[in-house]
Each structure stands twice: as C-alpha cells, then as structure tokens.
Computed example of a mutant assay.
Amino acid sequence: MTTTAEPLAYPFNDDEGLDLDPAYAKLRQTEGMIRVRLPFGEPAWLATRYEDARFVLGDRRFGREMAASKDEPRTYPARRPAGILGMDPPDHTRLRKLVATAFTVRRVEALRPRVAEITAELVEAMLAAGSPVDLVEEFALPLPVQVICELLGVPVEDRVRFRVWSDAALSTSSLTDDEQMRAHLELSEYMAGLVAQRTADPREDLMSALIAAREADTDRLTVEELVMLCNAVLIAGHETTATQIPNFVHVLLAAGRFTELGEHPERIPGAVEELLRFIPLGAGSAFPRYASEDVEVGGQLVRAGEPVLVAIGSANRDATRFPDAESLHFDRPQNSHMGFGHGAHHCLGAPLARMELQEALRALTSRMPGLRLAGEPEWKTAMLVRGPRTMPVTW
C-alpha cells in the first residue's frame, strides 16, 4: 500500500486526563499505516494495531541508532541525549546485560517485604496527617523514589532534586533548550560524583555492583556509559511508577472498583496487568524506530531510512488481541499487553514496577477503603507521560 496523503498532526491524545483519542479506533480499522507529523522533525509512519506494533518493536530491521543522524520526529525543539534508549544491539545489549541481573523476578521478590514496609509507613503517615492529602506528593512519588534510591545507593534525601531532573528529562516544551541541557548535565555530574565515591568505597547496592561488573568485564564500560546507565535507572526506575499509581487510583475510582481490590486482594496482580494495558500513558508516541531496509508492516511498505512511531496505547486497546478491550477485566487471560514495551528495549525494571504497583494498591485498598477524590487533579502538561501532578484525596 502507498499513500500520498498529507501527514496528520500528532499526537492525538490530550495532556489532561487518560482518555485514548477515538482516532486510534478508526485507524486500527484502516488498511496499512498512516503518516503523521509531530511538532518537530520529519514525518513518520504510525503503527496503531497490536500485531503491527509488536512487529516493529521486535524486528531487528527496525532500530533506534539511525535517529542520531536523522531529523527524529519529536514533540520538543532541540535534540536530546537518548542514552541507552538510542542504542541498538550489540552496544545496547552490552550495557543492558550489566543491569539485567538486578531486576530478575527472584531479586525483585526479595525486595517485596521492604517495599510493603515503605507503603505501610507512607499510608500510616497520611492517616496520621488527616485528610485531605495530595496522593502524589505523600505516597505515589516517595514510594518508588525511596525504593530506587535504596536499590541504586543514592541518598534518599536528594529526592527533591531527582524530581526536577526527571521532569526535565521527560518535558516536551516546558523548559528551554538550555534549561533542559543544564538539568541533564547536573544529573550526570551528580551521578559521576557518586560513581567516584562508590568506586573508592563500594557498598551493598546496585551502583557498586555495576562498578564491580565494569571492572570485571573484558569489554569494559567507560565512566560515561556507567553514568548514563545510572541516570536511566534512576529516572525510569521511579517516574513511570510514580505516575501510574495515581493513574491507577483515578481509573479504579471512576470505574467504581477501588473497594473491590480491598475486599479481594487476590485480584490485585491481575488488576495491575489490566490497568497497565488499559491506561494510555503517553499523549502520543515517542522514540521512533527506523527501518534499516525496506520492510512491509501491516500491508504498508516502509522504505529504508523511514521512521515508524508505535502507538502502544492504541495497540493495547486492539480488540483483535484483547476482546472487550474498552472494559476492565482483572481476570483477563493471557494479558500480553505492551505497557512495558517489547523487544530489545522492553523495560528492564518491569518486575520491580509490577511489584511496587501491586504493593501500592494493596496498601491503599486495605488501609484506606473509603479513599476518594477531594478535588480535581492537576494534570501534568507538556510531558512524555500523562498523569496527575497533584491529586487531592480524602477517605
């Protein structure tokens, strides 16, 4: 299939709220793919169906490295350091394997008692303070920040600084190019200082383990690569989880299913998977994959050198893969959603995020069964991920 149509303006979703734009449902019924244009960069193909999305993310003929030499489609004006997200195998594999052992299901399960302890402490503090409280500031943000700080070996008292740096990394337009780059450099300098400290004085944490692995590896990482890895672990390790906790609560309350999980805690793991499928986290799609040769995707020929954006939120609502996709089913069988991506760049921290989200819902639904909104959330704007910046709740 070929097309000469003018590219559609993209992204489709609004920043405020968690709705999936109806345009995606229409596009999933359209043969092939369409061309879209983001505010900056070259036009791209848009994959909206599950099978097409999974194919593009998993096929080695599509990669990220070409973006560095192209005018990458993006929602922000200046080009940014992509870090490990801009790499392809074998370099991507070389870096990823060092972190992979820290996020196995077995290692993550060993952390569950500590995460449950942190969630209990945060809930008790909210109960003691009395309502209303901001669920984001008092629970959703400090939980993953404390977990990833303890895991990585970063002083938890610096978490306020992490929020500034993380917001800058995920901002699409709220910062100038200079402000965004300054935040990136500040985070990198901070991490470089910690790497130097842990090199001289190793501890029982992930950063020390990464340094030890670097020293033992015959294909050694540079200090810059190690800092880049730690930056990625810190930001990815808390931002998405901190955003999804209030997103989950918001959707559960709107659906009238929050108390159900308190009464039936055995449904929580299935609820987490279904909410990861159901909630379209981004306003649009980011990190396009470039074709290294001519490839056909869903009946559409993608020429070598052309980018494809993958609409994961749309793919996760594809009724050909998920029957009754517009409804929540906590017992959905074989829920192979792509909430954590797919392929070479599948989220390394998925087991940790799953466990944190499970324990967050377990603590909130068991100790605060009457939780409800105490006002309208203030939604993040001009960010790569959507969710409440503040969310007042009472009980």
Rank of each mutant, 00 (worst) to 15 (best):
358 Q>C: 12
354 R>S: 05
91 D>E: 15
373 L>Q: 13
99 V>W: 03
5 A>I: 05
224 E>V: 11
58 G>A: 09
46 L>Q: 06
315 A>G: 00
316 N>K: 04
390 T>D: 03
280 P>K: 00
278 F>D: 06
19 D>Y: 04
101 T>Y: 11
111 L>Y: 07
2 T>K: 14
62 F>T: 11
43 P>D: 11
198 R>D: 04
292 S>Y: 13
243 T>W: 02
337 H>S: 01
265 P>H: 12
358 Q>R: 15
372 R>P: 03
289 R>Y: 14
345 H>F: 06
366 S>M: 09
11 P>T: 06
253 L>G: 12
7 P>L: 07
162 F>I: 00
264 H>L: 08
187 L>K: 05
334 Q>G: 13
49 R>T: 12
271 A>V: 10
237 G>R: 02
315 A>F: 02
110 A>Y: 10
138 E>C: 13
345 H>E: 03
108 V>A: 07
35 R>Q: 14
83 G>T: 09
340 F>Y: 07
267 R>P: 00
343 G>F: 06
394 T>K: 00
104 T>P: 07
144 P>Y: 02
70 K>S: 14
176 T>S: 15
355 M>Q: 14
239 E>T: 10
192 A>G: 13
311 A>Y: 00
268 I>Y: 09
211 I>Y: 06
165 W>V: 01
85 L>C: 00
369 P>G: 04
193 G>A: 03
34 I>K: 02
168 A>H: 01
135 L>M: 10
226 L>G: 10
144 P>F: 05
59 D>Q: 08
381 T>V: 14
178 D>Q: 14
304 A>Q: 14
312 I>V: 15
20 L>W: 09
